[in-house]
Computed example of a mutant assay.
Amino acid sequence: MDITIYHNPSCGTSRNTLALIRNTGVEPVVIEYLNNPPSREGLTDMIAKAGLTVRDAIREKGTPYAELGLDNPALSDEQLLDAMLAQPILINRPFVVTSVGVRLCRPSEVVLDILPLPQKRPFTKEDGEVVIDAEGHRISK
Rank of each mutant, 00 (worst) to 15 (best):
N72T: 04
T13M: 10
V130I: 02
E27W: 14
T17A: 12
L115A: 07
E78H: 00
E135N: 15
L43D: 10
M84F: 10
N16V: 10
A83Y: 04
L104A: 13
R138W: 05
S39H: 02
K120R: 15
R40K: 06
A19E: 09
R138H: 12
G136I: 12
A134K: 11
T24R: 14
A19W: 04
L34P: 00
C11G: 09
R106Y: 01
P94Q: 07
Y65W: 12
A86T: 00
I114C: 00
D2W: 08
E41P: 10
F123K: 05
N8Q: 03
V96C: 13
V97P: 06
G42C: 08
P118G: 08
M1V: 01
V29S: 13
D82M: 03
A86N: 06
I132Y: 10
I132F: 12
R59Q: 03
D77I: 06
A48I: 02
E67A: 04
M84E: 03
P9G: 02
V111R: 06
H137L: 13
K125P: 00
A74E: 14
N92E: 14
T53Y: 11
T24Y: 09
L52D: 11
L80T: 08
R59Y: 13
T53S: 15
D77C: 06
L43H: 10
G51A: 11
L70P: 05
T13H: 06
Y33D: 08
A50G: 14
T63G: 09
E135M: 02
L68N: 08
N8M: 03
P73I: 08
I3N: 09
P28N: 10
I139H: 08
D113W: 03
P73M: 10
L68I: 08
L75N: 03
L20C: 08
V96K: 14
D127E: 03
A134W: 00
I3L: 05
L20A: 11
S76I: 09
I5L: 05
L80F: 00
C105Y: 02
P28C: 07
G136W: 15
R59C: 08
P94Y: 04
C105H: 11
T53Q: 09
V96D: 15
P64N: 05
C11M: 04
E60Q: 15
D45L: 09
L80Q: 10
A86D: 12
Y65N: 11
D133I: 12
S140F: 07
A57R: 06
F95D: 12
L52P: 04
P37A: 02
L80D: 02
T44V: 10
